[in-house]
Simulated scan of single mutants.
Amino acid sequence: MKIGYDAKRAFLNNTGLGNYSRWLIKAIAAHYPGNEYFLYTPRIKLNSRLSFLSQYKNLITITPESKFFTSWWRSKGIVKDLKRDGIEIYHGLSHELPSGTDKSGIRSVVTIHDLIFMRLPGNFGIISRKIYEAKVKYACKVADKIVAISQKTKDDIIELLGTDAVKIEVIYQSIDPIFTITQSEEQKEAASSKYNLPAQFLLSVGTIEPRKNLLLLAKALKYVDVIPLVVVGRPTKYLDEVKQYLTANNLINRAIFLHDVEFADLPAIYQLASAFIYPSRYEGFGLPVLEALNSGVPVIAATGSCLEEAGGPHSLYVNPDDEKDLAEKVSLILSDNALKQNMIAQGLQYAANFAQDKLSAQLMQLYKNL
């Protein structure tokens, strides 16, 4: 088969949608080398996370002929190139499909990660929200198949967009294999020294924005015995609110914020943590939770979206507005080593459900069915 991908995020985005795109492209190319995979991107940007492209001869990168009007090319003009290249299936990896795909004779798939802009509209400007809504509604209407990255996302698509459930298939996302490798003591010591990490710490990873709800964890520190918190993630204005609370409550010295952590150092940081906390109010899947489980770290996450799907039955969960319950669960993990070790063992076992070979097989079966 010749399969085309909207690879913009793979080339130009280093966080969630980019991670998903790179994972899927790499996994499908590695496990199914007999096909050709065309990566369509409006431009190419040097990115160390794309080093795998040179390893697979079945990956072909396509850019538009002109550097002008690249947005139009991605949203409509690309269809001509798909026909030229003999693409049989085109997969939009981030919520959208180009106009005219449904009339091109090319089968189409779209991945919907979440409907956050509909569930939490206050987090988006009205123009951005309308654009997202129009793109998602169109893609779900014309796609032959929709991939939802969690059952929660599938339920939201059915409820909020009225899409037929038969059209939607849940295929989870896996993590970069780097998180499944046990780091050596030398690697851990190097990361600890590089980022000046304390001997013990709680860890939270993710963009520091209101939806991620870091303030809940800041509030919980008041009720937890002295242990530092390390936060890894890109800052936004929300960080000022978190720091103001920490300062007002004499907790600022217990928080360390790292905004420029190299991706290669993340596994060691995870594996050094005493517990991983992810109090997000809403996620499409919650990949950092799965990264933590694979790193052998006990997880506490918030209820209300899909994090139970990512964390499994042996992680702990709290209401995203209950800092005292969060503090109690943190204290429980820190004080009960038997519980902690059981959570680690069960978490590793649960994480095996998201192995790359299993998920890429589901994806390839979807393509074959089309």
Rank of each mutant, 00 (worst) to 15 (best):
R254N: 08
L12S: 04
L239Q: 08
R119G: 07
S295V: 07
E262D: 14
S54L: 07
K154P: 09
E262P: 07
I78N: 05
V299M: 06
L293F: 07
I25R: 05
E308F: 03
I62A: 00
R254F: 09
R129C: 00
E169M: 13
N47K: 00
Q183T: 13
V109D: 11
R74A: 15
N19H: 04
G296W: 05
Q244Y: 15
I78F: 03
M1K: 15
T247P: 01
A143L: 06
I3L: 10
P33Q: 11
T15I: 05
Q173P: 12
H259V: 13
K76M: 09
V136L: 00
R107Y: 05
L272E: 06
D321W: 13
D102W: 09
I227T: 11
E328C: 06
E36R: 14
F263T: 06
I344S: 06
Q55A: 09
L272G: 14
D357F: 00
V261M: 14
S71T: 14
R211N: 15
K26L: 01
Y278N: 01
F276E: 09
N319L: 01
I3D: 05
F201W: 13
V110A: 09
Y5W: 12
V109P: 03
E283P: 13
N342Q: 10
Y20P: 06
L229R: 06
I252F: 11
A165N: 03
R9L: 03
S75G: 05
L316T: 12
V289P: 08
E185W: 10
V330D: 02
T303K: 11
R129A: 07
T236Y: 04
T236A: 02
F68D: 12
Y245F: 15
I178C: 11
A355W: 04
L293P: 12
I89Q: 04
P64F: 05
I300F: 01
G304M: 10
R107I: 05
S204V: 02
K103L: 12
G206K: 09
Y282C: 03
R22W: 00
P320Y: 08
Q346A: 14
V142I: 14
